[in-house]
Design a protein around this nucleic acid. Structure first.
Lengths: 132, 132
DNA sequence: TATAGTGTATTATATCACTAATACACTAGG
DNA sequence: CCTAGTGTATTAGTGATATAATACACTATA
C-alpha cells in the first residue's frame, strides 16, 4: 500500500523543485521500493490534482515522466497503472549508472575548484557514510 | 592566480543552470579556495561578456550576486574586486557548495531508482573512499 | 583636463519551464 | 447504449532567464 495522505504534506508548491518533479520523484521511489506494485492504479489525474490543490495538467506531466521512464502506464479512459519493471536489466546497469553519476559529481566539483576532501565531507554529511 | 581561460570552456549556455549562476558559482568557490585573493580585480563586465560571448547584463547579474553575498565589491568607474572574506566563512562556503552537488547526485540517483548503497559503492570506486 | 575604460540604469524583446484553464476522446460498468 | 470517469490536447498566463540597445555616471591616468 501507499500512504497518499502523507504525500499531501510532502508536496510543496513553494519549493524550488517543480511540483510535477516532486510528485514523480515520490512515486518513483514508491515503485522502486515496492510500496506500489505492478498493476496498482495511481490516483486519477483529477483526483490527485484536487487533493493536492494543483492543476490536473501538472499531475499529467508527472505521470507522463513516469511513463517515459517505464515506471507507469497511462491508459486513456481507464487510468494510470504501475508497470512491471525489468528489474534484471536495471540491476545489471545500476553500478554502471552510479559510477557515471559519481564521475559527473567529480567533474562538477572540479569545475568549481572544490577539493576531493570537500566532496568527501559533504558525502559523509548527506549520505552518512564514514570516509577515510 | 585564477585561470580565466579555463573558465571559458566551463561556462555552458545549454546547461540547465543559468549562465549568471554558473559564473557566480565558479567565482564564489575561487574566492573561497583562495584562487582569487582579496583585492584581486575581476575582469570588467564588458571584457568577460565578450570572452564568454554572452551579454554584459548577464555578467552584471553574476557580479551583483557575488557583491550581495559579500564576495566581491563593484566600484563604479574602477572595476569589480575580490573582497576580504573570513577564512572560516570560506571553508563553510566550500562545504555548502559541496553539499549542494552531493544533493544533486542523490536526486539524480533517485530518478534512476538507485539505492544509497549503489552510490556508496560507486563513490568508493571513483574516489577511493572507504564507506561503511 | 581629456578621455578611455569602468560600473549603473532603463527599456524592450525573446525564450523557456511551469502552471492553469478548458475543451476533447476514450473506456468501463451499469 | 450511456454516462461517469478516465487520459489527451490545445491554448494561455506567469515568472525567470538571457539578450539587446542605449544612455548615463564615475574613476584612473596619460
Amino acid at each position: 500500500m501507499f500512504d497518499w495522505t502523507a504525500m499531501l504534506a510532502q508536496v510543496d508548491p513553494r519549493s524550488a523543485t517543480p511540483l510535477y518533479a516532486q510528485i514523480a520523484a515520490r512515486l518513483r521511489v514508491a515503485v522502486a521500493s515496492a510500496e506500489l506494485r505492478p498493476g496498482d492504479p495511481l490516483p486519477s489525474v483529477r483526483q490527485l490534482a484536487t487533493r493536492l490543490r494543483i492543476n490536473p495538467a501538472t499531475v499529467v506531466q508527472a505521470y507522463r515522466e513516469l511513463e517515459t521512464e517505464g515506471f507507469a502506464e497511462m491508459r486513456q479512459g481507464a487510468g494510470t497503472f504501475v508497470r512491471e519493471v525489468a528489474s534484471d536489466r536495471r540491476s545489471r546497469e545500476r553500478a554502471r549508472q552510479a559510477r557515471r553519476l559519481v564521475r559527473e559529481l567529480i567533474a562538477e566539483a572540479g569545475k568549481l575548484g572544490l577539493s576531493t576532501n570537500d566532496l568527501l565531507e559533504a558525502i559523509q554529511d548527506e549520505l552518512g557514510a564514514k570516509t577515510a
